[in-house]
Design a binder for these strands. Sequence first.
DNA 1: TTAAAAAACAGGAATTATCCTATTTCATAA
DNA 2: TTATGAAATAGGATAATTCCTGTTTTTTAA
Lengths: 219, 219
Amino acid sequence: MSDTKYVAIVDDHTLFRKGLASLIAVFPDYKVMFDASTGKDFIAQLNPKKLPDIVLMDISMPEMDGFATTEWLKNNYPDVKVLALSTMDAETAIIKMIKCGAKGYVLKDADLSELKLAFSELIRVGFYYNDIVSRKVMQSLTQLVDDKSELSAFMNLNENELTFIKLACSEKTYQQIAKEMFKSEKTIDGYRADIFQKLNISSRVGLAMFAIKHGIVKV
Amino acid sequence: MSDTKYVAIVDDHTLFRKGLASLIAVFPDYKVMFDASTGKDFIAQLNPKKLPDIVLMDISMPEMDGFATTEWLKNNYPDVKVLALSTMDAETAIIKMIKCGAKGYVLKDADLSELKLAFSELIRVGFYYNDIVSRKVMQSLTQLVDDKSELSAFMNLNENELTFIKLACSEKTYQQIAKEMFKSEKTIDGYRADIFQKLNISSRVGLAMFAIKHGIVKV
DNA sequence: TTAAAAAACAGGAATTATCCTATTTCATAA
DNA sequence: TTATGAAATAGGATAATTCCTGTTTTTTAA
């Protein structure tokens, strides 16, 4: 009994996406339903009457990233299994993807047989965790014991706070930032205080360092 | 007269590499000779008796990156045309690749027809430059002129100033920094003022951003 | 040795950032 | 409707930063 399973691919790099589709095309029992360049595009193409079994999901994308899309799927179609695609250098991103509901992850430098294995494990037992990556993630998790609050706090930052942080990583004064966000200076000061407490920091420079370290702002 | 052209692929992401190979396999007139995960691997597989016409080269790789490998090719087999693969957010990397001898570049989110066009242009006229990317690169080139003064200012920082900058990228107050450097607070303030003027910045956060951007401090 | 330049240091003012403790507004679940 | 909690807003105090305009000390070069 080998009924065909359906796969969707979400990645903003066309060459990668199409290449992957071309590879999966030769898998027996698997068929690429469609591919999308962003989470938004993916949701637009999704047909509730005929859902994919597996979604190969990249993390960084314009419009709607892998985190948001995975979370959306968890809330709307929890039976669709998300397999996160990532690179080794994005450990915290992997952790975040799992929290968002990804059922497994494969590295972009995995080989074809591993992808196949990941597929069949996803179908068979519902999840797939590569040993090497798991160990890496565990390592960074235990390594982050001190940073644990930092990490979970990072997850708990809301939109306003993230916007504020980005603006704070500049030479703008809080007064200017308040204007730019259409909020009072006191509200901005409240954001600052909340963030300082959440992230356990005590100065704007510390905030800037944190933001860069965690990719909230790019240098 | 359509004689077959040979292509090699160098990229450390196996899925991307194999996917790309699978895509190119359907191009008429092009054939993937081999693929490699690093520059070192590529050179090891290279047969001087039968060189590829085109090398699709990623930039970031372990062991030997795209820059070094492209330069090596320029010095050893200048007739082999390197087509750089990159993402939009790596402008300076693209410029560096061109300086290393790449004959063209395509973005990873290009589509198949553009890749095909790049191939044929490489064969026909010897180079390929995508308009959008070209414009981006030109932009960042002119921007580099502005950064030049910034850069030379960076060179003119003395030991004390560099020490101060490193300490300033923290939650320490200037008072604490003064103690740590065995200088008076006023001397520290003088360092700060000089640095602000030299680097044309106006706040400690700006200084921290500069320091990270230029590798004075690591995140 | 001496003049010039560079480095260290200072007083004081203005601005910004930080840190308290409240109150008001608003959506939303009971 | 009302209770509840989160988000926004405030006043006011203190600390830190930024920005002036100087003087003193040390180094360097003629």
